[in-house]
Write a protein that binds this DNA or RNA. Structure first.
Lengths: 119, 119
DNA sequence: CAGAATCCCCTCAGATACTG
DNA sequence: CAGTATCTGAGGGGATTCTG
């Protein structure tokens, strides 16, 4: 039963700020793909530093694949959700279903953390 | 679609250290109930301060109910998962299913964060 | 365009000591 | 037993500046 460990880890990095908002942005992209700046523009308030860090974590976890188009100037890098990443989107939907069932009456959003989504 | 906000919040506090391990401990208890010290003993490494803080958050979120037995000396306080909390256990199971599917080959546990569970 | 490097603040969590 | 109070160190994340 040691896989709880992975669950632990998962929840730990998912809990980081912006993380799952980024995942959802990629999810909304054509072919589950978005460019760096594209994500940045769609998540008002996020800094390049944080976005960069989160994408790197997602890449290391195998949830996202990075593709750099060589030879283009300026550089174009694209990030795509992997099958594993898509699987996680389903988990997020589960969370949302739970939240809808139990949390509707909840407090209003703090503007900074709140964005629409396609779930 | 503003409920993403709640999802955001959910993942944020679930991501806190020990949080979901505590939930699982309550889940394992008789009638989904455990006493403070009981949980503490079963989660080696957790401090009273953190356990206390997490339980308070869970209570505020409506995932846990606290019952203090009046008149007993010393005091006995019990924590029980609510229906909402039980619903969240199902979500954790979803996360585990996802993890099993995509993360088995994963790195070994850092002993400190790893505990068995009943999932 | 897509970051990396710095600085700085703030929260989280561990350790320790104390209490009704 | 079931906490609270205080101190501390590590890490997260924002703002700003710089670069291939």
């Amino acid at each position: 039963m040691q896989s709880v460990c992975t669950v632990n880890r998962t929840v730990k990095y998912l809990g980081k700020k912006w993380m799952f908002l980024i995942i959802l942005e990629l999810y909304k992209g054509d072919g589950y793909t978005r460019r760096f700046t594209e994500v940045k523009e769609r998540l008002p308030g996020i800094t390049a530093k944080v976005l960069s860090a989160r994408l790197k974590e997602l890449e290391e976890e195998g949830l996202v694949e990075k593709h750099v188009e060589a030879g283009t100037v300026p550089v174009r890098s694209e990030y795509t959700l992997t099958a594993s990443g898509l699987g996680l989107v389903e988990v997020i939907k589960d969370i949302k279903r739970w939240a809808l069932r139990w949390k509707i009456e909840n407090r209003a959003c703090g503007a900074q953390d709140c964005h629409d989504c396609v779930l």
